Simulated scan of single mutants.
Amino acid sequence: MNLRIIGLWMLCYLALTAAMYFDLGEQEEKCLIEDIPGDMLVTGYFLMEHWDGKNNFNSPHLGLTITVRDPNHDIIMKKRYGKFGKFTFTSHASGTHWLCMQSNSTKFSVFADARLRIHFDVQMGEHSIDPSAERHKHTVQNIEYSLEHLRDQIIYITRQQDFQREREETFRQISEETNGKVLWWAVVQTSILLSVGFWQIKRLKDFLIAKKLV
Rank of each mutant, 00 (worst) to 15 (best):
S195N: 14
N104A: 05
K212S: 14
F22Y: 13
D113Y: 14
G38K: 07
E176A: 09
Q123S: 12
V214M: 06
R117E: 09
D152K: 06
F108Y: 07
C100N: 03
T178H: 13
E177W: 04
L8V: 08
R165N: 11
F87W: 09
D39P: 11
V42K: 00
L16V: 11
K79V: 04
G44V: 10
S109A: 10
R115D: 14
D113L: 09
K137L: 15
D206W: 10
E148Y: 14
T67P: 01
L16C: 05
V140W: 08
Q189H: 10
H119N: 09
G63P: 05
H61V: 10
S91M: 06
N55R: 08
F120Q: 01
I174V: 05
V214C: 13
D35N: 12
V42D: 02
L193R: 02
L32I: 11
I143F: 09
F163E: 04
L64K: 00
M101N: 02
Y156A: 07
Y13L: 01
M20F: 03
S191Y: 15
T106S: 12
L99Y: 07
I155K: 04
I154S: 06
M20H: 15
H97W: 08
I155S: 08
L14S: 02
Q173A: 11
T106H: 06
W98E: 12
I143C: 08
K79C: 03
E28D: 09
R135W: 15
D130S: 12
K79I: 08
E148Q: 13
R167S: 04
R135H: 11
H138Q: 14
W199C: 01
F57M: 09
G85D: 03
L116W: 04
L14M: 06
Q160L: 13
H97K: 13
C12N: 12
Y156K: 04
M20R: 14
K202A: 13
R167K: 08
E176W: 05
L99H: 03
L213C: 06
I209N: 14
N2M: 05
N56F: 04
H136W: 09
E166M: 08
E168G: 14
Q102W: 07
S59V: 02
Q173W: 13
F163D: 10
Q160M: 15
L11N: 04
A210W: 10
T67R: 09
I76M: 14
I143W: 13
E126M: 00
T65W: 00
I157D: 00
Q173V: 10
L193P: 00
I143T: 13
K212E: 12
A186F: 09
D35A: 11
E134P: 01
Q164F: 09
A19I: 01
K78P: 00
Q200F: 12
S91C: 03
R115H: 14
I118Y: 02
R115G: 13
Q141P: 00
T96G: 11
E144V: 13
I174P: 01
Y156F: 03
K107I: 15
T178P: 02
L62E: 05
Q200V: 08
I36E: 00
Y21P: 01
G53Y: 05
K54T: 04
S103W: 03
G85A: 01
M20G: 08
R117V: 02
H149V: 04
K107T: 10
Q161L: 12
G25V: 06
R172C: 14
